[in-house]
Design a protein around this nucleic acid. Structure first.
Lengths: 260, 260
DNA sequence: GCTTTATGAATTGCATGCACTTGATGCATG
DNA sequence: CATGCATCAAGTGCATGCAATTCATAAAGC
């Protein structure tokens, strides 16, 4: 439940700009955490979904306009996304969608494997019945869309790992896993082959089985291999396509950003 | 070349402060360093060193005044520290130094152990001569101050782990380790016994030895035990002292905050 | 006398204005 | 014709002002 903060206008306008200067933020929302978070979440989503291409410029005004807020909000959201590693902040130049190098990508995957190892160890043999049901259900859904809907497939794959992290009940772990999964999505989108992410659905199922069986070692092994497979699928491309993709992507992205 | 313009707010520079700016701030990215970052680093240091007690209020103007900047800077720094988990942001109430519960503390340590496991695995048998020298030197310094200067001792202990993380060359890893080390410092300060942190110097030495020897398994084991020891030292206190410390700390911190 | 409701001070949330930095365009020069 | 330099526009960096919220204090009601 991370998106619940959004009040009325989810992605379009965070604040109705009718009464721009003095408009009270629709007085008494309960649990209303600042608009900053809403914008931050929206931007994150947009980046992960590749609506905003890596390297694209993110001008404060444009973002403010797009969300019906001032630059202040946009700026703060960008700052926090920079901490998360999804945005790069260049002093006096502005913010850009992160454009991770392959080395960075490798780094992220290394950390991700370590984090998910913790998740797996925490969960092995400790899943409750209802939690198992949720997991099985999720894997089933993944299987459904596999092959049809690629965007959804990617989203669900990421969600699977987030789900596991949440089941640990370890909030710190959840935050970090969330971050690396986001960044991995970006990296896969950049370097992975178009339909390289469908694979692995069966692996998810196996991991769940091992977790239920309480076979921690096997679960960890499965998870690790799973992630290594995903990573290598992405990083293998480099040898062949690095020149084209890696070199051209930033420029292409920049052009796109200017068109928008 | 326009000399007539002198910025008013910049009168008391953020750069000069003899105050806390010591520790290696967010090493990694390019220098850059906006005022926001300076304030962020200073606040982080102050929190870690317990100059700012857990639960203490962090009003924007006070921070702005203290650093000679406006609330804007203070606000942004607080926002980012909140992402790091060192500051808690309560909507419409303001920012407070994080006051992690014991459960949170446990969570942080779990993640930390996982992260440092990665560090250890990355480093085992791959240290170069000059890196080894730096490590040995650091451990020697730790040994020197051990027993005498507690604050410095704690700082160096944290620094040792950061040093290892940096040696991996994995920036993502560095960032996360930095964060968990910070948070662990806070947690130890809150729940650990006064001089519980001196211990472990010899363990650091052993870890370095195992890394040099290329004995990855042993290094991981040592590191894991080391961290478990540190964690348990902190968490054991809870049974006896939870009621007093945990309950009273926030209030005490509040009072201190008001005095300041 | 104690609970409940107004009033006010302090502080956050947010927008906006102004100076400064940076990169681009056009002009003069070798 | 290429190179270096001044001018300019776009956009960031930061401070500040105003409305809204919250908490504390005081007044009114039972």
């Amino acid at each position: 439940m991370n998106i619940t903060r959004v009040k009325k206008g989810a992605s379009r306008s965070v604040n109705d700009p009718t009464a721009k200067g003095k408009g009270p933020p629709a007085a008494g929302e309960s649990g209303a955490i600042s608009r900053t978070e809403a914008v931050q979440d929206a931007l994150r989503q947009a980046i992960i979904e590749q609506r905003l291409q890596p390297g694209a410029k993110l001008p404060e005004d444009a973002i403010g306009d797009a969300f019906g807020t001032s630059r202040t909000i946009a700026r703060e959201a960008l700052g926090r996304l920079a901490v998360e590693g999804l945005v790069e902040l260049k002093p006096n130049r502005g913010a850009f969608v992160a454009n991770p190098s392959l080395d960075e990508g490798r780094d992220v995957f290394v950390v991700r494997r370590g984090l998910e190892r913790i998740v797996t160890e925490c969960l092995s043999g400790k899943l409750k019945a209802d939690e198992i049901a949720v997991l099985r259900d999720h894997v089933a859904r993944e299987r459904e869309v596999s092959g049809h809907n690629e965007v959804e497939s990617i989203r669900l794959a990421g969600e699977f790992h987030l789900l596991l992290a949440r089941l640990t009940g370890n909030h710190v772990l959840v935050r970090y896993v969330t971050e690396v999964v986001s960044r991995c999505s970006l990296i896969l989108a950049m370097y992975g082959r178009p339909h390289s992410s469908d694979c692995g659905v069966s692996e998810h199922g196996e991991i769940v089985d091992a977790l239920i069986a309480g076979n921690g070692a096997r679960a960890v092994e499965l998870m690790d291999h799973h992630l290594e497979a995903v990573a290598s699928r992405a990083l293998l491309q480099q040898k062949a396509e690095r020149d084209i993709r890696d070199v051209l992507a930033p420029y292409a992205a920049r052009i796109r950003g200017l068109e928008a």
